[in-house]
Nucleic acid binder design. Structure first.
Length: 423
RNA sequence: GGAGAGGUGGCCGAGUGGUCGAAGGCGAUUGACUCGAAAUCAAUUGGGCGGCUUGCCGUCCCGUGGGUUCAAAUCCCACCCUCUCCGCCA
């Protein structure tokens, strides 16, 4: 959520960045409502001041045993008027909130302006795609042949876009999860958290999934509970409504959770294999920082995610998303894309964003500056550290051998109980 | 799920219709005393919103949302949460 006061005085800038985000939202109703609301507020507050004073007089009169019927009658009339105005303000407020909650975040100045993924800017590459002496197979062929992936079973137990991992496949998923959590907690200083996998509407609104993107989420029938689409939601909301001390910042949080996504609007995309699932595992990183440090923290967090792939020795590239391709709540986003030999392409495996104070304002998370003064909104950052299921895919495809067996990456051998290959 | 108790400022805790944003204590900050933030004494000590003459004025906030009233932390209704006991259960 953006600050209405800031929007009011920077309206041209807002219109420009909305256009850069391919968003055609009309802001004039917002401005009109804002103005009407402020006028009504002045009016009702003045009436309330008069009523407070009148009520005080009634109290004093009654204490002295005097009659106060006249004042009481006058105050009753004022009360009626106040009720009327407050009702109108509540209406405007609801509409205003609705609009404010549906305006995306302002992109940072360093973000390339562009329409779609073709305008994203590659910032670096790491590793050389391996030259195979044979035709590398896609992970679904490898996984099924090894008996570690069962797509039919996933579909029959649940639906399409669900996969069952078995045996060494399930073990590899668990090994990757533990490896990532250990890396971030021990080496990078994140606090490991095991959050709820379901959260309420208020929490979903805090990070920006609601009210706009309900159709992407799974909701529990008859309850105000939603399955989390990412651990970003519970982790970022951990300090919702709090005023932190500057000394506490930055906070680094990490969690493994399954993630649940409807994938509405993704019909026909990545239907084979387990690249795009309704349920997948992810290790997530979240930072809560001061505005002064948040962009340095974004670089560091992106590096933390890249380190997972460097340690596994799998090639990747990192891109900076352009204004048209960036998510709703982000001011700046780096996507990390892993090399998938069967597709001869880099595919997204992590997304690291600085949301500045966009989520903080929704969640009401602030900090008290060391130098004193009023509380300020924190900056929040989130990044995949990294998507576990897609990492498993990348391991299978990049470490495959001609006979269909898989070499276990060096870093994972301890996590696989000493196992050096899957066959 | 059933029965009971309760939710007040950073924390503890008083307040059951009238100058209550809220006593008192703890904690914190500042000042005095001091070799010394040990003790003592004094002062200060929440947040949101609106207005303008940017320092003040006003307004709102005692779990949340409604209601009653000239006036609500205090009365009524609904919901949420916590605790105790019972039931169920990993």
């Amino acid at each position: 959520m953006l600050d209405i006061k800031w929007i009011r005085s920077n309206i041209d800038e807002v219109r420009t960045f909305l256009a850069n985000r391919n968003n055609d939202l009309d802001l004039s109703p917002l401005l009109a409502m804002d103005e009407e609301k402020r006028a009504l507020l002045s009016e009702t507050e003045e009436l309330k001041a008069r009523r407070n004073e009148g009520s005080k007089k009634v109290g004093m009169a009654k204490a002295k045993g005097e009659d106060a019927a006249g004042v009481m009658e006058e105050m009753r009339a004022i009360g009626e008027k106040i009720k009327e105005i407050d009702l109108r303000i509540a209406e405007i407020d609801a509409a205003l909130d609705d609009m404010l909650l549906s305006i995306p975040n302002r992109p940072h100045d360093s973000v390339p302006v562009g329409r779609d993924e073709n305008d994203n800017r590659e910032v670096r590459r790491w590793g050389e795609p391996k030259a195979f002496s044979f035709e590398p197979k896609p992970h679904w062929d490898l996984g099924e042949a090894l008996g570690i992936m069962d797509f039919e079973k996933g579909a029959s137990l649940a639906q399409s876009r669900f996969t069952v991992l078995k045996g060494k496949g399930a073990r590899l998923e668990r090994a990757l999860t533990n490896f990532m959590l250990d890396l971030h907690t021990v080496k990078h200083g994140y606090l490991e958290v095991e959050p709820p996998f379901m959260v309420n509407s208020k929490t979903m609104q805090g990070t920006g999934q609601l009210p706009k993107f309900a159709e992407d989420l799974y909701k529990c029938e008859g309850e105000d509970l939603w399955l989390i689409p990412t651990a970003e939601v519970p982790l970022t909301n951990m300090h919702a409504g709090e005023i932190l001390e500057e000394d506490q910042l930055p906070l680094y949080l990490t969690a493994y959770t399954p993630c649940f996504r409807r994938e509405a609007g993704a019909y026909g995309r990545d239907v084979r294999g387990m690249l795009r699932q309704h349920q997948f595992d992810k290790v997530e990183m979240v930072k809560i920082a001061t505005p002064e440090t948040s962009y340095a923290e974004l670089e560091r967090m992106t590096d933390n995610a890249e380190e997972v792939l460097r340690t596994l020795n799998i090639p990747f590239r990192t891109i900076c998303l352009c204004t048209g391709d960036m998510g709703f709540g982000a001011s700046k986003t780096y996507d990390i894309e892993v090399w998938l030999p069967s597709q001869d392409k880099y595919r997204e495996i992590s997304s690291c964003s600085n949301c500045e104070d966009f989520q903080a304002r929704r969640m009401n998370t602030r900090y008290r500056p060391k130098s004193g003064g009023r509380p300020r909104f924190v900056h929040t950052l989130n990044g995949s550290g990294i998507a576990v299921g897609r990492t498993l895919i990348a391991v299978l495809e990049n470490y495959q051998r001609e006979d269909g067996s898989i070499e276990v990456p060096e870093a994972l051998i301890p996590y696989m109980g000493g196992l050096r290959e899957i066959r």
